[in-house]
Write a protein that binds this DNA or RNA. Structure first.
Length: 815
RNA sequence: GCCGAAGUGGCGGAAAGGUAGACGCGACAGUCUCAAAAACUGUUGGGGGGCAACCCCCGUGUCGGUUCGAAUCCGACCUUCGGCACCA
């Protein structure tokens, strides 16, 4: 009688042994190629849920696989520890954000250890510790000195009742405060920006990156490059200080179709351009607009709103007077915040024109146009009409001709605009890295000298539900001396966006304990760039984009020698439960701990990998995991109960060898492309096959032992604890994780016999088992000679025969 | 609204443009048991035919198209999910 598989005991024992032996401690290794396998570090929300395991278990399996393949693997773990939830906890529960965060980290670290990953905990990075954020601040100074940081006014969400700045997340429903349901307004504050737009062109270049196409596309769309022209429209009122307003358009060829002119409600010239008789209406509209979210504003099909200012601009090409309106669908952040409206050829302009009874003039004739009024806006190309001397040109030629005219007359020029906006890094909160800037009445804006870093968060700040950042009311923090003149000065009280912390953490893992620098340059040179970065698709744009910008800027400052941080990227999908993404508020969070306690970490790891393709995510199922658990139990019995060889069949031994090599080939290929689900299917088929062999005892003991040795090595990255235990029990020396990954021989992995499919007119009609070396001529003859085939083709004329080597013979006949 | 994905048995899913449903779950039947659980063995897309070995038809969200052949490629539509700049 054999012992039962006791997952918990086995897992605990081996985790302790691995830790005691430091088998996963990472060092520089010159004889092995390096492989930096990075998983996005978790936010310190409190508990790891099964979604975290879904991100981390397969990536650990992959890292283990690369390790067995002979790479020197760095697969570190840390915590993204600054952010809003810690501050909310402070306000609602009276616990300091630091204590809340560190308590969460202790719990999460314990959970992560229970997974049995190869993380080298000596390299842990925690972004909220002064030893880390000192360097986040140092990077801010580098960006500042490189001219990449600047201060400007920008709107924030503001709750008039709470008197506080709100994150987008805290604005709920139809734009109300989550705490008091008061409608949220916008307020302009001086804030810090990073000049990411300077890198717009470079960030569009993904040519050297092995990233999923759809992520590259999303980033390209995020940059939103548009080519067009900037055109000046002269103001009719010549008394004004301002003489003209510039617009950006991608369609200068439609300029003769301009029938009105639009400004964003936030445009600085709105009040000057408003006639007294329109003031009341305009003011009302401008006050209403900030309640809309940006994507409500630009939505197509939504009833258009706006107000007429009572003033006009002059169209440079035909001298026409064009009325100036404001409309919320014109965004102040894109282009120049002003639009020449061409209702005939832009859907939203047409909706606006119809709503306010403004004229529509067709200037690009669609193919076959007979001069009738267009039913809908025509945005395609065509022939220019109603366009003065340009009429008759194609819109493409017209584009060039009009640009040439604008440039010749000085009315405008060809230009490129980006949807990308500069990165606003200021947050009016406590729990973040303080921005290392001091404001002095005499010296102005003064950066904190490097030697004075870190600017520490004051531990005694008060967390009140009203008011702004607690830092603002912390006198001991705010009041300081100017580093230049030593006179009284005030500290910047905003902290940095947490995306700053996560834009460089992967550098810190290489030298986490370095005190004299943000990172050890030689180690970064050795390990970076990251060879494989995995994480949630929700980071497709922002985090991945900011980190790329960060590294490109560091490259230009001479701090690193590469310009892309992540050579290969893989985004796993989302794990859902009862049809929804897991969240505390929905109450559908699956905690891994209870499953680890009941079935073991290897079962949880295995089930998460078996659920489906990693990039697609999937539905957690209590039923599904028992399937994996049962399989682990079967593997246990298969390997622990003695094998008894009875009648040795050389054919069976040969076939087992073939099956083994076929499995090595499949498992290796599936791991390379992150198909953990089909990798597990292959391993299951192999163990099922081994069970049958064992039942019949038809191979010798040594052949048997060799086969299970192969199985365990293939199994080790997926179920590290069970594989280790069985490796020991089957008489192998410690440790399976220091074994090398098995190779396979192509001629052994290959099938000797194949099933050839016989089709008639593409329909399956017969199958024949043939040697894999069958020739085309033989295959055709065999197919045409089959009785079943003859029945389908008799009396019909043979049109052609299609042969797909080793797969199909398709006989095409005409009736 | 814009951008990006995904739709295949009762369920999770598998299929280089070439046998649709591997592997697993569930269900059903059986073995073991006083019984149950566990474990093991077998069956399992729908419809029809045959005593039977088997055979035929229909089937991959919907409608079209390309192809000798489409789950896979193309077009339109429907549904679900992710992102949209202060959640991280």
């Amino acid at each position: 009688m054999t012992q039962k598989y006791a997952a918990q005991e086995i897992e605990k024992t081996w985790q302790q042994r691995w830790a005691a032996d430091h088998i996963y401690t990472v060092r520089r290794h010159n004889s092995r190629p390096k492989f930096y396998a990075l998983t996005m570090f978790p936010y310190t929300s409190g508990d790891l849920h099964i979604g975290h395991w879904y991100a981390m278990a397969p990536s650990d399996t992959y890292a283990r696989f690369k390790r067995m393949q002979g790479y020197n693997v760095l697969h570190p773990m840390g915590f993204d520890a600054f952010g809003l939830p810690a501050e909310n906890a402070a306000i609602s529960r009276g616990i300091h954000p630091y204590d809340w965060t560190m308590r969460n980290i202790d719990n999460m670290r314990r959970q992560l250890r229970s997974m049995g990953a190869i993380y080298d905990w000596d390299r842990e990075v925690i972004t909220c510790l002064p030893s880390y954020y000192k360097w986040t601040q140092w990077f801010f100074l580098k960006f500042y000195h490189a001219g990449l940081a600047y201060r400007a006014k920008a709107p924030v969400n503001w709750c008039p009742r709470c008197q506080t700045v709100l994150a987008n997340e805290q604005v709920i429903g139809e734009g109300v405060c989550e705490r008091c349901s008061t409608p949220v307004t916008k307020r302009e504050l001086e804030q810090w920006f990073f000049r990411i737009t300077k890198y717009a062109e470079e960030l569009l270049d993904h040519s050297r990156l092995d990233w999923p196409e759809h992520i590259k596309t999303m980033q390209k769309n995020w940059v939103g490059k548009s080519e067009g022209a900037e055109i000046s429209f002269r103001l009719e009122d010549e008394e004004m200080e301002q003489k003209e307003i510039r617009v950006f358009t991608t369609r200068p060829d439609t300029i003769f179709g301009v029938t009105f002119f639009l400004l964003a409600p936030e445009h600085p010239l709105v009040s000057q351009l408003t006639r007294p008789e329109h003031k009341a209406e305009v003011d009302k509209y401008v006050a209403w607009c900030p309640r809309q979210t940006e994507y409500e504003r630009v939505a197509l099909g939504r009833e258009k709103t706006g107000a007429f200012l009572g003033t006009y601009v002059i169209n440079p090409v035909n001298g026409e007077r064009v009325p100036i309106w404001i409309a919320d669908y014109v965004l102040p952040t894109y282009g120049t915040g002003a639009v020449m409206a061409v209702p005939a050829h832009d859907e939203r302009d047409l909706e606006f024109a119809r709503r306010f009874k403004l004229p529509v003039r067709t200037v690009i004739a669609p193919p076959g146009w007979m001069g009738e009024e267009l039913a809908e806006a025509y945005a395609g190309s065509g022939t220019m009409v109603n366009s003065g001397e340009f009429s008759g040109l194609s819109s493409e030629k017209g584009y060039e001709a009009i640009c040439a005219l604008l440039e010749e007359k000085g009315w405008g020029k060809r230009t490129v605009v980006y949807r990308l906006r500069d990165w606003l890094i200021s947050r009016q909160r406590y729990w973040g890295a303080p921005i290392p800037i001091i404001y002095c009445d005499r010296c102005g804006t003064v950066p904190v000298p490097e030697e004075d870093l870190p600017v520490l968060l004051p531990p005694n700040a008060e967390f009140k539900p009203t008011g702004e950042s607690p830092l603002k009311y912390c006198q001991s923090f705010v009041n300081t001396a100017c580093p230049k003149c030593s006179g009284p000065a005030r500290r910047e009280t905003d902290t940095m966006d947490t995306f700053m912390c996560s834009s460089w953490y992967f550098l810190r893992y290489t030298s986490p304990k370095t005190r004299s620098a943000s990172f050890n340059a030689a180690k970064v040179k050795y390990w970076l760039p990251v060879d494989l970065y995995t994480g949630g698709a929700e980071h497709a744009v922002m985090h991945l984009f900011y980190a790329r910008f960060f590294i490109k800027a560091l490259k230009d400052m001479g701090l690193v020698s590469f310009n892309e941080p992540f050579a290969r990227l893989f985004n796993q999908g989302t794990i859902v439960y009862r049809g929804d993404k897991m969240s505390k508020s929905r109450g559908n969070v699956i905690a891994p701990d209870e499953y680890v306690a009941k079935l073991g970490a290897d079962a949880v790891r295995g089930y998460l990998m078996f659920i489906g393709p990693w990039e697609l995510g999937g539905e957690w199922s209590d039923r599904g995991i028992v399937g994996i658990s049962r399989w682990l139990n079967r593997v246990w019995s298969l390997m622990t109960a003695d094998y008894a060889s009875r009648v040795v069949d050389p054919e069976a031994e040969k076939e087992l060898l073939h099956f083994t090599h076929k499995t090595i080939k499949e498992v290796t290929a599936d791991l390379e492309r992150f198909r953990f689900n089909t990798m597990l299917s292959s391993l299951m088929e192999f163990s099922n096959y081994l069970s049958k062999i064992k039942e019949r005892g038809i191979v010798s003991s040594s052949v048997w032992k060799e086969a299970i040795g192969y199985f365990l090595r293939l199994f080790a990255p997926t179920a590290p604890h069970l594989a280790e235990e069985l490796w020991k029990r089957t008489g192998h020396p410690y440790s399976v994780h220091n074994q090398s990954w098995p190779g396979y021989a192509e001629e052994l992995a290959r099938e000797e016999e194949i099933t050839l499919i016989i089709q008639v007119n593409g329909k399956l009609r017969d199958k024949i088992l043939v040697s894999a070396s069958v020739s085309e001529v033989e295959a055709r003859e065999l197919a045409l000679g089959r009785e079943r085939v003859k029945a389908y083709i008799s009396g019909k004329s043979l049109t052609r025969v299609i042969y797909v080597p080793k797969r199909v013979v398709n006989i095409v006949v005409a009736s």
